[in-house]
């Protein structure tokens, strides 16, 4: 072995070694990054679904995810589907706006006044703790089978977590901040706008996220129960007539919309709470 050869060999060994080191570096970076791990988990889940559905499962019950995604353009052409999506979106929007408006107002009042809190909070918590699906038939009875009962039931689902979360956010405000604002002559509105609201902002967003999820739940639940319109109606229809691809497409769609709304709220919250770090 000449000196030259020896040199080349060590060079090669070194480059293999550095490549290995590079890979190891990448791997450790990947393992220590929660975002990458989470993404891998989600991709893994869909990959497992795809493989299992393509080769092992009964396609009647579990179609491959690729088939579900590819069916989406056709899915939107189902008669009355866009109308159903529109109706559900309308119901959720009205119920949610009402739940936020009333939930925030009541939550602020309960968080602010000790007397009100001690009087009414136990009732709120009690109602919140009851499995309110049993009230669903009652809502149908009171509000009929149309849009109104769905909005009412969605609202009833959404408003309580909002009240509780907002009240908790207001209650832990430091009294000295209120005293300080009052001493400088702040009006009630100014105290609300510059002291109470910024203080409860994180809870406000948590309340919106919780409220959105529960309102959506309430609306879809009541649509599933009485099938006339909306996506709940289609979900029931698809499951009873074994249109599994469409059922999965519907689930995928609703889930994606829910995640997007949640993510928009979360980003907004992060943007407005920059002062925390």
């Amino acid at each position: 072995m000449t000196v030259l050869e020896k040199g080349a060999r060590t060079n090669m060994a070194a480059s293999v070694q550095s490549e290995e080191a590079g890979l190891r570096h990448l791997w450790s970076k990947f393992v220590s990054s929660p975002g990458a791990l989470r993404l891998a988990l989600v991709i893994g889940f869909f990959a497992a679904w795809e493989i299992y559905a393509s080769f092992f499962a009964n396609p009647r019950f579990l179609p491959p995810i690729s088939e579900v995604v590819l069916s989406l353009p056709k899915f939107f052409q189902i008669r009355n589907m866009t109308l159903a999506l529109g109706i559900t979106a309308f119901e959720v929007a009205v119920a949610f706006v009402m739940a936020v408006a009333i939930g925030v107002a009541v939550g602020i009042a309960l968080g602010f006044s000790r007397v009100l809190n001690q009087t009414f909070m136990p009732i709120v918590l009690l109602i919140y703790a009851t499995p309110n699906a049993v009230f669903l038939p009652l809502f149908m009875l009171l509000f009929g089978l149309g849009v109104t009962s769905k909005i009412a039931y969605g609202f009833a689902h959404g408003v309580f977590p909002i009240i509780i979360t907002v009240a908790a956010g207001v209650a832990n405000l430091k009294p000295v901040l209120l005293a300080s604002a009052r001493s400088m002559g702040a009006s009630r509105y100014q105290i609300l706008r510059h002291v109470i609201f910024p203080h409860m902002l994180p809870n406000f967003f948590a309340a919106m996220r919780l409220g959105m999820a529960t309102t959506l739940l309430g609306v879809i639940l009541s649509e599933l129960f009485v099938s006339q319109a909306g996506i709940g109606h289609f979900a029931r229809l698809f499951s009873m007539t074994f249109q599994t691809v469409n059922l999965y497409a519907l689930i995928l769609l609703v889930t994606t919309i829910a995640i997007i709304i949640n993510e928009i709220l979360r980003r907004q919250e992060a943007r407005l709470s920059k002062w925390r770090d």
């Binding site: 430091k174 000295v176 901040l177 005293a179 300080s180 604002a181 001493s183 400088m184 002559g185 702040a186 009006s187 100014q190 510059h194 002291v195 910024p198 203080h199 902002l201 002062w275 925390r276």
Partner: peptide, 26 residues
């Protein structure tokens, strides 16, 4: 005007906005 023992600045506003807010209230 008051100066309190505890930190009575509004943590969600920066220093200059805290001072200006007092004048806005006033």
């Amino acid at each position: 005007a008051y100066v309190f023992q505890e930190n009575a600045l509004f943590p969600w506003y920066n220093v200059i906005d805290n001072i200006k807010l007092g004048m806005e209230f006033q």
